[in-house]
Write a protein that binds this DNA or RNA. Structure first.
Lengths: 215, 215
DNA sequence: GTAGCATAACTGACTGGTCAGTCATTTAAT
DNA sequence: ATTAAATGACTGACCAGTCAGTTATGCTAC
């Protein structure tokens, strides 16, 4: 009845279980990315992970929980990385913004994680749980960081004071579009992320910057 | 043997056929938008259009062709509208850019058509035909127009000469993100398209404009 | 008009294949 | 020897696509 045993918290068995869980998560990402949630077959996930279908159900209760569990597993390392960016408070807002955007390009857009981004966009409306979770844990944090940088820039005089709605969205929009483009249209018209990044930063920083006499 | 008859090109019958085809296309958009391609049931499309399942197959050979036909049908009025924008060549590049972006916000983002945009992003990788068609017929035209405006702006001295890769994508990115946001996260954090549009235009025009002394 | 006929449009029960989820049995670890 | 992990054949629900049968439309002759 009582949960006495398990003196060793990381026995060989538990290590293997964890490894298998990760393998399943990787396989799930691969399969769901390839064909989307509805068309993905549990058998395919199992095969990709090198196990049988029954095993999948030892680790996840249902297809839906496999999907949600996969997204959450794949998100958590990103969250830790993001947190590590908040150091070094005495650099300019300009540099901090550049740094954050570069982080996003290299750690999300140029990785498997951009698939997560697309899956959230594709399947989000059918998985309100997940969309909400993603919004609460990823987007709102990212927004807070970008908004803080913009605020800092306004206070230091680097940026002009744009009170408007949706500024933060517009600042990062170029990056999201790059990610989507890579996944959907790159085969017809490829883009180079590095130089795209330069354009993005140039355009946005110039757009934000104070003392730009227009007209 | 010969195809002599059909003197009246728009008989009552043909009109009704066309009306039914449109009803099916509307129903298909509604159902595919709601649940995505794979999870959509032909029976649901039929019910939404007020016909039986068999009838759907009198108008479209397969689910896939229904989907592609729907996307193409829904795109064509937009293409005509876009073409109508190319008039009035002696306004400033700034005004033309504003006008084009406003067009996109009001005629695409704030309409059913944004669903098409999302479906292309979600299902595009599984329908290479469709993604290519969309790229060739919608995106490349849109790009050409925006690029022409930017070029004009550079020549007139309104905009600085940003040679970088992906400038056009970055200019319109804010609008795409607004559309995606509305469809996926608006319920958790709503955005107001009008003031979002103002911010977008302000940021981008300032970013493009010449004589902005940064650093 | 309208009766009769030909053809087009539509219907929905049915089929065959697919796949999420189960569980009795087998295999591996301790 | 005992317990945990893994298997894969099986089931039941679901659904794209079919087709024999039904209904509506238009046409011709009267």
């Amino acid at each position: 009845m009582s949960e006495v045993a398990e003196a060793a918290p990381t026995s060989r068995r538990e290590q293997q279980k964890e490894a298998r869980r990760l393998a399943l998560v990787d396989a799930a990402l691969a399969v769901f990315s390839r064909v989307g949630y509805a068309a993905a077959k549990i058998d395919d996930v199992a095969e990709e992970a090198g196990v049988s279908k029954g095993t999948v159900y030892l680790y996840f209760d249902s297809k839906e929980q496999l999907f949600e569990g996969m997204v959450k597993s794949k998100m958590s390392p990103m969250l830790n990385n993001v947190a590590s960016l908040a150091i070094d408070p005495d650099q300019s807002a300009t540099d901090r913004l550049k740094q954050h955007l570069r982080f996003f390009y290299t750690k999300v857009l140029d990785t498997d994680r951009r698939q997560i981004m697309r899956l959230i966009m594709s399947e989000g409306p059918n998985f309100p749980h997940l969309a909400e979770f993603y919004h609460a844990n990823v987007l709102s944090r990212g927004q807070a960081m970008i908004n803080a940088i913009i605020q800092q820039g306004i206070e230091t005089g680097e940026f002009r004071n744009m009170a408007g709605h949706g500024l933060m969205h517009n600042v990062v929009a170029g990056a999201l579009v790059a990610g989507i483009w890579k996944l959907v249209f790159d085969r017809f018209q490829p883009i180079d992320l590095d130089s795209y990044f330069d354009t993005h930063v140039d355009l946005i920083l110039n757009g934000l910057c104070a003392a730009a006499p227009r007209d």
